[in-house]
Nucleic acid binder design. Sequence first.
DNA 1: CCGTATCCTCTACGATACTG
DNA 2: CAGTATCGTAGAGGATACGG
Lengths: 118, 118
Amino acid sequence: MARKQSAPDCGLHAALAVLGGKWKPAILCELHRGPARFGALKRQVLGISEKVLFEQLRELESTGVVLRTVLDPAPPKTVEYSLTPAGAALTDAVQTLVEWGQHHVRIRASAPQSSIAS
Amino acid sequence: MARKQSAPDCGLHAALAVLGGKWKPAILCELHRGPARFGALKRQVLGISEKVLFEQLRELESTGVVLRTVLDPAPPKTVEYSLTPAGAALTDAVQTLVEWGQHHVRIRASAPQSSIAS
DNA sequence: CCGTATCCTCTACGATACTG
DNA sequence: CAGTATCGTAGAGGATACGG
């Protein structure tokens, strides 16, 4: 995604360009708990493929929310990914949305106002 | 979007399922300014096609953030779309993200830390 | 004016295998 | 372990035309 939008409504556009996509939320969520290596992320995020994990990581890196650090350049090199201050601020800003989501789910679960699911 | 995710990290999943997609943010942004008719939205959101606008509107309606009201059932019928209380709460919750986005953009504009856009 | 149907494109995402 | 390359797929989104 991160396609070009006709009218950049606001900063929302920028924010969604960063945490948009199928896996970025999960990745950010993991990194929010602390730094992690590539393999660790791959294991924690589950269903994700190496290729996609990498792409997402590079995008997150290029948007300045994730930091890539090479711990050991030796053949079986180890690299660590962590949140930048901006990334931390983002995951923090997202909390409001998280709460809305949780609340929203509960409301709809108890009071179905229209035909939603079968 | 609204695809199935391996691990519903949190309420974020729910929130993104609602404002995910290419146009929903823009649509929600417009409705945030007040109720609008189909044609009005079509005009304001610009690049969007009727089909997509409709799909998005229906999804927003089914997730309970947008309300559809038929004002005049007569042949050239008029319909109005507006935010439900939940929708208003959402656009409000999103403000934090908007601010982050705006701030983030300014930071990166003044201090490019890596190669981002061309 | 509002809504629906059809068809087509584009790209994010997926599976896998290989190199340093 | 980390990163790259290749090939394939599904589905969101786009253009357009018709119907109530």
